[in-house]
Design a binder for these strands. Structure first.
Lengths: 157, 157
DNA sequence: GCCCAATGTTTGTATTCCTAACGTTTACCT
DNA sequence: AGGTAAACGTTAGGAATACAAACATTGGGC
């Protein structure tokens, strides 16, 4: 009966546009990742591991922005597939030392490749200059709100 | 031991920037909404109701983009607070007709006010021209991917 | 030696989006 | 008319991301 064209009133709101485009981006990326049997946390953890080298779960969580609670499952999943190794720290028995295996490194290469392809697909309708400007505007927004959000934590330390 | 400054390698990726900014936007908006005891679905449903007038749950779901499964809970919550009314459709006993109460309309006004404030806070670091360009770029991305996503559904009907 | 902090872990919450199944009711088709 | 297909409302649950709270173990500062 109704023709279901819904130019809803919120369609133009910046917050809505952000949600929608982020949703599309997330779909692209997580489809890309899942085609290799991974998800976002896996990539973030593997990438952090390659940058930082072996480290404790807590340190990895801080660097990757993954919550400690979620690190456990993420590492379990990666360790099950031997992309990552969990070994007790001999110098601190509270800690596990997580390290990247060579299979993990190969997986990371695959994920990075997918990720790059996704960026291109995501930005397909924009020219190189427009992509640049978009990234710049988004960075400004993120930096602004990151500062508003982050814990003050005494800056002398 | 490590100084935890993590300029992770994915920080500059467009998909990541979108996720982050959308996350900030979502936090702002949903904080704004929850200060009036509502959430995103509530606003979308109320706004759709005001635009479309009374309608069945399925029709509202299509127009608002809210999944049918989630409509039930959303309407329950709004009906509990008498912001919305659920009445059986006499001409089709499968359907409920949902309509906006005057309290619901007042709530919608409140939500719209919060929403507008949030847009401003979200875009605070950008000039009016920059806001315009951001919206334009995001719209292009969204439209592009909306078309790729939407079901072909025969265009004659 | 004590106390506090850090660590790893489990459990549980919330939101958004989505799938699947089910019973009821209506619509269509022959 | 009869039978099948479709729409509707509902319930239940899963996946991904993000977070809070509690807990036992261990280290380190004092």
């Amino acid at each position: 009966m109704e023709s279901e064209e819904t130019p809803a009133r919120w369609e133009g709101l910046p917050s809505w546009l952000l949600s929608q485009t982020a949703h599309h981006a997330h779909r692209l990326v997580s489809d890309g990742f899942s085609s290799v049997g991974a998800r976002g946390y896996h990539y973030r953890l593997l990438a952090t591991l390659e940058e930082s080298g072996p480290a404790s779960q807590a340190a990895l969580g801080r660097r990757s922005g993954i919550h400690l609670s979620d690190m456990v499952a993420t590492i379990n999943e990666l360790a099950d597939r031997e992309l990552v190794e969990r070994a007790p720290d001999p110098s601190d028995r509270r800690r596990n030392i997580i390290s990247l295996t060579s299979a993990g490194k190969r997986q990371l290469r695959r994920l990075e490749k997918r990720l790059a392809e996704c960026q291109d697909e995501l930005l397909a309708p924009l020219s190189p200059e427009e992509r640049q400007r978009l990234a710049e505007l988004l960075s400004r927004l993120r930096d602004h709100h990151d500062r508003r959000t982050r814990i003050p934590e005494e800056p002398g330390r």
